[in-house]
Design a protein around this nucleic acid. Structure first.
Lengths: 352, 352
DNA sequence: CTTTTTTGCACAATCGATGGTGCAATGACT
DNA sequence: AGTCATTGCACCATCGATTGTGCAAAAAAG
């Protein structure tokens, strides 16, 4: 307030102004002054000066000296997706409430990029890292371990570090059962009427496919392999798969399971190119929740993954003394069609 | 690779190993060795050692010394929203391609929080800051100015720093015209049939409301004030506004303009509580694009704001010598119903 | 074989904070 | 008054890099 446009005040400036030594100023401003037996009056004087001059500590200097930065990282595959962006939102809130600074970055599902990004984070001496949806969690683990960085995997498990993931198998079972039951309301459902689109060679996809097949076999008696159409996590590839099916059959499957909201975007691309009748009576299950996806013009059952709980558990694990590489499952919830859940935004005050 | 689990190598370690002085090592590793007339052979030796030991610079130390951190900040209102999350995605890509490190944080539209968050970023000596959708851009500006931090406003303008925003007035005109024309296909539209929901006391809302009223008056001849229903950026409040209208009229307006995708989520909450018939023939315009929002079971015209261009322009401005507090407009595009645009995710390779 | 120039590098200060150590002044006690 | 404990703080090394300066040795010039 007092200095306008000047450089930022340092403990040395306050040292001059107060007549105390820099180390005294430092002790006062970082709260360790009681331990250092600084007189209360001295402390108050320095506090006052600090306020007047708008002092804030240089966290790079502090981090350099103490080799702790107060930064906590979250590595995401992508931002542009409600599952991950709401994870980022919860993450931020929890990091802030712990008095640290969140650092959210994405690595585009590229294993090379994942490692490079983490190297960069390490160069800033981040204290802890959440690795979400990494393509190569164990590769990232090695980078972290070399630097002695505490970390957990979220969403996709690794074998070397503790992991907290959605119970994909159970979630997929719930979702599959829901769409089968709903489809059967319109008449008997043959195994050929139920497909799965999306997913690739990762743990989550495997588990979801396994859950899908289990339930499908139990309820419909069979499960031809052709009904599983992996397309990767790409809207374009997914759209192509729908297109291919449509060309072969003149329609979409009566019911299908879509592996993630990213794949569901592929369905939108398909729909954009075809008249409404093409999908007038399909039943869709999507392993992810999106508030608009829930209101599409056909029934969409969704799975809401509990990213908030995953983050909470992640912190609990990081805070623990020992961190065995165990995988913890978090139960997701089934969201029936036409449901608007409240999200992290609802915690915001928006008066006026 | 060579040391497993050890502490990170520093220039002093490499100095010992190579026999060169720390300053020589530093010069080699930061690329300034030509300028310092270091022999090529020396440089190569040091490079080799650095690779073998997996050296990476301590960026806090570098930042402390050079008072540049390589960090570029993006301050968002919220993550959990396709407009802002896709902005984050473009931002990251551009920052990375400039060899810097993106730091994306949200401040929940709380002016106090905005300033606090920026103070924190400043403590990490970030080099540049993008302030997106800030509630109080000028308050943030002052904090930045005190610290000598270069910054631009995105999405919501300030008066003290350069701003790059969507051409809200023009976008609103396009959107309003589109929904009016579409609604008129179903028969004549009276001024009471066209409402606007959402928005609050910010520049974007004002401009959008202005554009809406201009076009509505021009095409429908009148524009009763009751047709403007500001609800803030809150799904819950927006839902309440729809509910209130519905209680008063037994239906929703034939056509309406929704101020943002966040407000559109409020419509979803309303819909969840009412049967399909309630909204069988509404026409909606939403000032924001969401790939699923575009395929709701009624026509939804959307406005896609070009956040990628905004970020690009932002960098251009930050790179310029002078930065007058001018507001730059970026033209958004009208997206007709049932349209799936490609997004930043499509740049990703997703093989297999 | 000097003198000058160039090459190649080492030295040391510095960025802003932290924390161990040491010492003077004060007060308590015998 | 002399001894001892306590209080209150200053001093200084340190974290890991950057950078201005200076100086020896080698090369070029005379």
């Amino acid at each position: 307030m007092t200095d306008i446009g000047k450089k930022k005040a340092t403990i040395y400036d306050l040292s001059m102004l107060s007549g105390a030594s820099p180390s005294t100023v430092s002790a006062v401003l970082n709260g360790s002054w009681q331990k250092r037996r600084i007189k209360e009056a001295t402390a108050q004087l320095i506090q006052k000066l600090a306020n007047e001059h708008g002092y804030t500590a240089n966290l790079q200097a502090r981090g350099l000296r103490s080799s702790r930065s107060g930064l906590v990282g979250l590595l995401l595959p992508v931002h542009d997706n409600r599952y991950f962006s709401s994870m980022a939102q919860s993450f931020e809130a929890q990091v802030r409430s712990r008095g640290q600074c969140p650092l959210v970055v994405s690595a585009c599902r590229d294993p090379e990029e994942e490692r490079k990004v983490v190297e960069t984070l390490i160069s800033y001496s981040i204290d802890e890292l959440f690795i979400a949806g990494a393509t190569d969690p164990d590769g990232v683990h090695k980078v972290c371990e070399k630097a002695g960085l505490k970390h957990v995997n979220i969403d996709l498990p690794g074998t070397l570090a503790p992991s907290i993931i959605s119970d994909n198998h159970e979630g997929a079972r719930m979702l599959t059962q829901a769409i089968i039951e709903r489809a059967q309301e319109d008449g008997p459902l043959s195994p050929d009427d139920l497909y799965l689109f999306g997913g690739r060679n990762d743990h989550a996809s495997h588990e979801r496919i396994r859950g899908f097949r289990d339930v499908k076999r139990a309820l419909l008696g069979a499960d031809p392999d052709v009904c599983i159409q992996p397309t990767g996590y790409s809207p374009a590839m997914t759209a192509r798969a729908f297109e291919a099916f449509y060309e072969g059959h003149g329609k979409l499957p009566r019911a299908f399971f879509v592996n993630s909201s990213i794949n569901l975007e592929g369905l939108m691309r398909f729909l954009a190119l075809h008249p409404h009748e093409t999908f007038a009576d399909i039943i869709v299950g999507c392993y992810d929740y999106d508030p608009f996806g829930s209101f599409l013009p056909f029934p969409v059952f969704m799975i809401r993954q509990d990213s908030e709980t995953m983050i909470t558990k992640g912190f609990a694990i990081l805070d623990a003394d020992r961190r065995p590489p165990i995988t913890h499952l978090v139960r997701p919830t089934l969201v029936p069609p036409r449901t608007a859940l409240i999200g992290p935004l609802d915690a915001l005050k928006d008066i006026e």
